[in-house]
Design a protein around this nucleic acid. Structure first.
Length: 504
RNA sequence: UCCUCAAUAGCUCAGCUGGUUAGAGCGAGUGACUGUUAAUCACUAGGUCCCUGGUUCGAGUCCAGGUUGGGGAGCCA
């Protein structure tokens, strides 16, 4: 019996197995919040129903102790989930040692050290379930569309985008790298199957300490024969729309737990804004208005509202500190206010960081040099102007990967496309149409100073029945972070691997 | 690799311009109270103030170097 199925068992006596998520006790009655992986439910252990012995056992329960409870399901609107259990019996499996994660705010480093336990907390539980729904939704979408799932190798000899951010391993005496993309292999498979997608881990040794980088992350890379860049963009659009819609439909409870504001997420299910690089640059630099406003004015407006927000937080801190210092204040109320102040101070730090950043974004946007790739702040500035994801295509070929096709109308541009998620989440998809002409690919390999010999097999794909083809790569963790509106990708994967962290 | 901020009790943090035996809350333990939802009351036990060196009569506090972590840049998904 699982907590999620209680609705169908009202009035019956059932057994639940799980862990103590929380406990409150008094002389004659104890309240145990039991979590079983499917949800949480309050169990009432009344000495009059279970007897002295069982009640005394219940009193020994600590946080995260494991147990099974027998009891009657009772509907109670006050409870999370709407039901509670009136226990008739209880079997303790283990009384847990003192649990390190308390019911309070913790620091990131501490929580990361306790990741194996942190996963049990409600918020992490919700994120992992949303991740699962997204993964399943991705497979469903591609399978429905007739794609064949393929597994690209993880050891690879090809360093397709330079070796600086590759993990090198010893492969029977020769260097092998951990894959940073399965795309080249995906192209080969697409020539065999028509439409394929990879779904696997990728590794990048970037010594990045930012909210959107991991050293090990999961990437989904579809590759389609006979698709041009515009068909590619159509696919990206319907793909993301369907996956996000599935999460909205199926993860209402989980999205509620992570505190996701659905209005923005719902707005993103729509045709995406499509901009060429040139158009995007015009908007970033403020020369082109969007709905009557330009980026500079928008950012200055943001600056103003952040300042108001800061003032409001400061006022609330002052108010609550005054309350704390009042004579004769109840201890509980005092603690409550102290906790609030601690939270407020944290949000103050965030607001102050925004206040420092926004002027820098304005400066970086106004001074943007045509021809360069977008930086993190440029992406933020651009996405700030729209509610839906943005697809930027036709990039200056110098800043893009060697395998991208040039725009036949204008050779200055490569047919790459980046999808930028709203709300500051930046690039979640990178893709494009691939070069089909063997000589042009060769020229690019030379330009990028890549070892030609190792790419001979890739060139074969152009020698034997080359066709127009396109594909893209989606970063799973970035998508999860965006869907959940998390401040950092480290919470989107069970055991994040990033610069400076290998354990647990 | 660069810029920037931080490191004090198991946890979250105070500790002002260097000055006796370093504080609070949470958590833990004990007892009382209670159909409770991080909000009752009291008591108790918890510290190599990250490391090394320096300045000083005196360093948690100042300086230098290091270590670890946060945020960001670059690069990317």
């Amino acid at each position: 019996m699982k907590v999620k199925d209680l609705a169908s068992k009202v009035g019956e006596v059932i057994e639940l197995k799980g862990w103590v998520a929380n406990k409150r006790e008094s002389k004659t009655v104890a309240f145990v919040i039991l979590r079983d992986g499917s949800g949480q439910c309050q169990c009432i252990i009344d000495v009059n129903n279970v007897g002295e012995k069982v009640f005394n056992d219940a009193k020994t329960l600590t946080l995260e102790s494991s147990l099974s409870i027998l009891g009657k399901v009772v509907k109670d609107e006050r409870q999370v989930g709407g039901y509670e259990i009136h226990a008739t019996d209880l079997k303790i499996i283990q009384v847990a040692e003192e649990y390190p994660i308390a019911k309070k705010e913790h620091g990131v480093d501490f929580l990361m050290d306790q990741r194996h336990l942190w996963l049990r907390s409600q918020r992490q539980w919700a994120i992992m379930r949303i991740r699962n729904t997204i993964i399943f939704g991705i497979h469903q979408f591609f399978q429905k569309e007739g794609f064949i799932q393929m597994d690209a190798p993880i050891f690879t000899g090809n360093a397709c985008e330079g070796t600086t951010n590759l993990f090198e391993t010893d492969y029977y005496g020769q260097p092998a790298y951990l894959s940073q993309s399965g795309q080249l292999y995906g192209e080969a498979m697409a020539m065999a199957m028509g439409k394929i997608y990879t779904f696997g881990p990728t590794f990048r040794a970037e010594k990045s300490k930012t909210r959107r980088h991991l050293s090990e992350f999961w990437m989904i890379e579809p590759e389609m024969a006979f698709y041009d860049i515009f068909q590619n963009m159509d696919l990206i659009e319907s793909f993301l729309n369907e996956v996000i819609q599935k999460v909205i439909d199926e993860c209402e409870v989980e999205l509620g737990i992570v505190g996701r504001d659905l209005t923005m997420l719902e707005k993103s299910i729509a045709p995406f804004q499509r901009l060429t690089y040139d158009e995007a640059v015009e908007i970033i630099t403020g020369k082109q208005k969007v709905n009557g406003v330009n980026t500079i004015d928008t950012l200055n407006g943001d600056l103003k509202s952040k300042e108001e927000e800061k003032a409001a937080i400061l006022a609330e801190i002052e108010e609550r500190e005054a309350k704390i210092n009042q004579q004769g204040i109840k201890k509980g109320e005092r603690n409550f206010n102290m906790n609030k102040v601690a939270q407020l101070k944290n949000s103050l730090k965030d607001v102050e960081e925004d206040l420092r950043n926004i002027p820098e974004w304005i400066a970086s946007a106004t001074n943007f040099t045509y021809g360069e790739d977008f930086g993190g702040s440029d992406e933020t500035v651009l996405t700030r102007m729209f509610d839906t994801p943005i697809m930027v295509y036709d990039w200056p070929h110098e800043v893009k990967a060697f395998y991208l096709k040039r725009n036949p109308e204008d050779e200055r541009f490569a047919r790459g496309v980046d999808v930028l998620a709203p709300e500051g989440y930046g690039e979640i998809v990178g893709g494009g149409e691939r070069e089909t002409d063997v000589e042009k690919v060769k020229a690019k390999i030379i330009e990028h100073e890549l070892p030609m010999k190792e790419f001979e097999w890739y060139l074969d794909l152009r020698r034997y029945g080359t066709v127009p083809h396109s594909g893209f790569g989606l970063g799973l963790e970035r998508l999860v972070a965006y869907v959940c509106k998390l401040p950092h990708v480290r919470e989107t994967i069970p055991f994040p691997r990033m610069y400076g962290r290998l354990f647990p």
